[in-house]
Deep mutational scan, measured.
Amino acid sequence: IGSLMYASIFGNVSAIIQRLYSGTARYHTQMLRVREFIRFHQIPNPLRQRLEEYFQHAWSYTNGIDMNAVLKGFPECLQADICLHLNRSLLQHCKPFRGATKGCLRALAMKFKTTHAPPGDTLVHAGDLLTALYFISRGSIEILRGDVVVAILGKNDIFGEPLNLYARPGKSNGDVRALTYCDLHKIHRDDLLEVLDMYPEFSDHFWSSLEITFNLRDTNMIPGSPGSTELEGGFSRQRKRKLSFRRRTDKDTEQPGEVSALGPGRAGAGPSSRGRPGGPWGESPSSGPSSPESSEDEGPGRSSSPLRLVPFSSPRPPGEPPGGEPLMEDCEKSSDTCNPLSGAFSGVSNIFSFWGDSRGRQYQELPRCPAPTPSLLNIPLSSPGRRPRGDVESRLDALQRQLNRLETRLSADMATVLQLLQRQMTLVPPAYSAVTTPGPGPTSTSPLLPVSPLPTLTLDSLSQVSQFMACEELPPGAPELPQEGPTRRLSLPGQLGALTSQPLHRHGSDPG
């Protein structure tokens, strides 16, 4: 009997000691992992102490058991019943959930998450997105703005933001810190809205009876308010094209079509300037034949640059190039080494500058006005007194259609001029006259002087055409309008007829 009692007592005591040691061994194993994590990542002392304290409290609170892992091991129907039991206190005593059906309560219970916070733990920081609604079931918390405590909340209090009033989550206007050990039930806004969409009859009752104890939403960050730039940057990543407008005076608003859609830094370009900076079609017209890549860069430059609305530039004389043409100036200075066709295309550029300027006046029909002061630039669209967005969009579309028509007509005119030049060069190729044979009589004449090349004649003739079109064909006081194609086609051969009437002889060394 004594040996039996000794064996039973010894066996029970050893089993008890073994169970104690097993729990202690698990605790030390998990604690060792936490300390190894702290050492590996070199976490500083204040945060390291918070980690160790939280682990110790969580171990004593749950005995080292992962409740979520245990809950996920059950089937979904059983999980709903378990969640309904775990959140029964909240669902029974909170006013917004009263009167809900059994199915609605089960769906809500599945969406709730339980959070346990030790003292000093910050649940929400200032500036964080308010993605959830919090219900306090135990403990107390404090809300701070800077170093000032603005509120202390306790059991059955609710904090967050009214989700039904805002389409997008706002930002917190303060820090939420736990004063004691707290148990909180939180539900994400997407989950709550999903359940309320499934039960629309409960939705009206819920929003009407929901009383948020403390609204954390920062009202200064609401979209459309003066301080909402940061919020707009976070939620409006896919922005449309940006529009900046110059201020319109009362006198300017009476004149229709007073602005032109141009790229940034293009205030001095012609009315047909689009795409790359520098001139019509993204580059100076005089350098068009020598740089074919300008047409390839036109599309990307047009689509990537934001639109700006600026006044037209001052008018340019008909014979003056659009500006920024070092290529043609070098050719004029060193005409001995340049291609003979460069002079002809220089005359073509003069005609283009004249036609572009006159067509700009035809479509816009307003006098040039000086540029406004820099303080009046970049007025935002949302400022008071601005035109409605639809009106601005319609004006932009009208300007775009005008620019497209202008570009089409300029292309047709350019093709006409090039065809005339090619026809003239085919009839009378460039050549130098040879020395004529002296006559049989004693009164022999001296050799004839060489005839100037055709490109120079073409430049003079085209300059005469531009001056003739600019000065004589337009009646005084009438708006400057571009001439039609047949009129220009008839004027060019008439001007060139006198020049080509002389018999030109080919030089023996000319390969053409």
Score class of each variant (00 low, 15 high):
433 S>M: 09
506 R>G: 10
332 E>L: 12
428 V>G: 12
460 D>G: 08
280 P>Y: 01
137 S>N: 11
364 Q>A: 14
455 P>E: 10
502 Q>G: 11
443 T>Q: 12
372 P>R: 09
500 T>K: 06
271 P>N: 12
376 L>P: 12
420 L>D: 04
461 S>L: 06
160 G>I: 01
321 P>R: 10
463 S>C: 08
441 G>R: 10
239 R>H: 11
178 A>L: 02
146 G>F: 06
455 P>W: 06
183 D>Y: 09
494 G>D: 07
359 R>L: 10
436 T>E: 10
146 G>H: 06
420 L>F: 06
272 S>E: 10
478 A>Y: 15
312 F>W: 08
372 P>F: 10
313 S>C: 10
261 A>I: 13
209 S>T: 14
332 E>H: 10
179 L>A: 11
410 L>Y: 03
260 S>E: 10
337 T>I: 11
213 T>W: 01
266 R>H: 10
344 A>M: 07
242 K>S: 13
496 L>P: 12
214 F>K: 01
144 L>V: 10
483 Q>R: 08
206 F>C: 02
458 T>C: 12
288 G>W: 15
388 P>G: 14
152 I>F: 03
308 R>L: 07
243 L>A: 11
416 T>E: 04
497 G>P: 13
285 P>W: 15
187 I>Q: 01
509 S>F: 06
299 G>E: 07
507 H>G: 13
442 P>Q: 12
467 Q>M: 13
333 K>H: 10
402 Q>Y: 09
421 L>Q: 01
496 L>G: 09
161 E>L: 02
191 D>E: 08
243 L>E: 12
146 G>Q: 06
219 T>D: 13
322 P>G: 13
148 V>R: 10
353 S>I: 03
340 P>V: 10
177 R>L: 06
338 C>R: 08
175 D>N: 07
174 G>L: 08
214 F>S: 02
245 F>K: 10
326 P>G: 05
344 A>S: 11
341 L>F: 04
233 G>E: 12
459 L>E: 13
230 E>F: 08
411 S>R: 11
251 K>T: 08
282 G>K: 04
152 I>W: 13
227 G>S: 11
201 E>K: 04
314 S>P: 15
324 G>T: 15
249 T>S: 12
316 R>W: 07
269 A>L: 08
227 G>V: 10
148 V>C: 09
129 L>W: 06
191 D>Q: 03
194 E>F: 10
213 T>P: 02
376 L>T: 15
144 L>H: 08
164 N>G: 09
456 T>V: 09
196 L>N: 01
454 L>N: 15
253 T>I: 11
137 S>I: 05
140 S>H: 12
207 W>C: 07
289 P>A: 09
341 L>I: 14
436 T>F: 09
403 L>G: 04
247 R>L: 09
233 G>S: 09
271 P>Y: 07
469 M>I: 10
137 S>H: 06
127 G>T: 01
492 L>V: 09
291 S>E: 10
311 P>E: 08
139 G>P: 02
486 P>V: 04
442 P>H: 13
365 E>N: 15
141 I>P: 02
157 D>H: 06
475 P>D: 06
496 L>R: 10
400 Q>I: 03
384 P>A: 10
427 L>N: 08
494 G>C: 09
373 T>S: 10
412 A>V: 08
216 L>G: 03
347 G>P: 04
404 N>V: 14
443 T>H: 13
178 A>E: 03
244 S>I: 11
202 F>Q: 05
351 I>R: 10
264 P>I: 13
372 P>A: 10
427 L>R: 10
503 P>T: 12
407 E>T: 08
178 A>Q: 01
422 Q>E: 14
147 D>P: 13
415 A>R: 08
300 P>R: 06
357 D>C: 04
482 P>I: 10
411 S>T: 14
142 E>S: 13
396 L>Y: 08
271 P>E: 06
373 T>I: 09
314 S>D: 08
427 L>C: 05
165 L>Q: 09
481 L>V: 10
247 R>H: 08
508 G>V: 09
444 S>L: 08
424 Q>G: 07
413 D>T: 01
509 S>H: 11
144 L>Q: 04
381 L>S: 11
282 G>C: 01
424 Q>P: 05
332 E>S: 08
474 L>T: 07
323 G>L: 14
265 G>T: 11
213 T>D: 05
177 R>I: 08
311 P>C: 14
288 G>R: 11
187 I>R: 02
171 K>W: 09
506 R>N: 08
233 G>R: 09
241 R>F: 07
380 P>E: 09
363 Y>N: 08
131 T>Y: 13
443 T>W: 10
418 L>S: 03
410 L>T: 04
446 S>L: 06
224 G>S: 11
428 V>E: 05
198 M>H: 12
501 S>P: 11
135 F>Q: 01
496 L>C: 12
359 R>T: 12
195 V>F: 03
375 S>H: 04
321 P>H: 15
131 T>E: 11
380 P>N: 05
458 T>L: 08
434 A>R: 14
181 Y>T: 11
340 P>W: 07
263 G>E: 13
195 V>E: 01
200 P>Q: 05
376 L>R: 09
350 N>I: 02
272 S>V: 13
416 T>A: 12
416 T>R: 13
318 P>V: 12
498 A>R: 10
209 S>K: 15
451 V>F: 08
377 L>F: 10
476 P>Y: 04
211 E>Q: 11
424 Q>R: 10
324 G>H: 09
470 A>Q: 08
384 P>E: 04
396 L>P: 05
171 K>N: 09
159 F>N: 01
376 L>N: 06
273 S>L: 12
174 G>H: 12
368 R>K: 12
136 I>M: 03
226 P>S: 13
462 L>M: 09
438 P>H: 07
317 P>I: 08
454 L>V: 11
412 A>S: 06
480 E>I: 01
393 E>A: 06
140 S>I: 07
147 D>E: 10
380 P>F: 03
303 S>N: 13
131 T>P: 04
167 A>Y: 09
447 P>Q: 09
507 H>N: 09
381 L>T: 09
221 M>R: 12
163 L>F: 11
168 R>P: 10
509 S>N: 04
153 L>H: 01
252 D>K: 08
242 K>N: 07
389 R>G: 13
251 K>E: 10
208 S>E: 04
143 I>A: 02
407 E>S: 04
160 G>N: 01
133 L>G: 02
160 G>Y: 02
492 L>K: 09
312 F>S: 09
381 L>M: 11
169 P>E: 05
499 L>S: 11
342 S>H: 13
177 R>P: 02
415 A>T: 12
308 R>M: 10
429 P>T: 08
263 G>F: 08
207 W>L: 12
270 G>I: 10
195 V>H: 03
494 G>K: 10
244 S>Y: 14
206 F>W: 12
219 T>H: 12
462 L>N: 05
424 Q>S: 11
143 I>C: 04
229 T>W: 06
336 D>S: 11
433 S>G: 11
314 S>H: 01
340 P>M: 10
321 P>C: 11
208 S>Q: 15
373 T>R: 09
312 F>N: 14
158 I>N: 06
272 S>R: 04
163 L>A: 10
506 R>K: 11
269 A>F: 14
272 S>T: 10
181 Y>H: 15
156 N>M: 05
180 T>K: 03
172 S>M: 02
402 Q>T: 05
312 F>M: 06
402 Q>V: 13
128 D>R: 03
329 E>N: 04
134 Y>W: 14
397 D>W: 13
197 D>R: 10
395 R>E: 04
332 E>K: 12
374 P>Y: 09
280 P>T: 05
408 T>L: 08
438 P>R: 11
192 L>Y: 02
164 N>E: 06
179 L>N: 03
377 L>H: 12
222 I>A: 11
475 P>R: 07
492 L>H: 11
144 L>T: 13
361 R>M: 15
398 A>E: 05
285 P>F: 13
432 Y>H: 08
438 P>Y: 09
418 L>A: 09
219 T>C: 14
320 E>I: 13
441 G>T: 06
286 S>T: 06
509 S>L: 08
388 P>F: 13
231 L>A: 11
230 E>G: 09
202 F>N: 06
346 S>R: 12
129 L>R: 10
349 S>W: 04
145 R>T: 07
272 S>Y: 12
482 P>A: 10
154 G>I: 05
409 R>A: 06
429 P>E: 08
332 E>V: 11
425 M>W: 03
356 G>W: 04
192 L>T: 03
258 E>G: 10
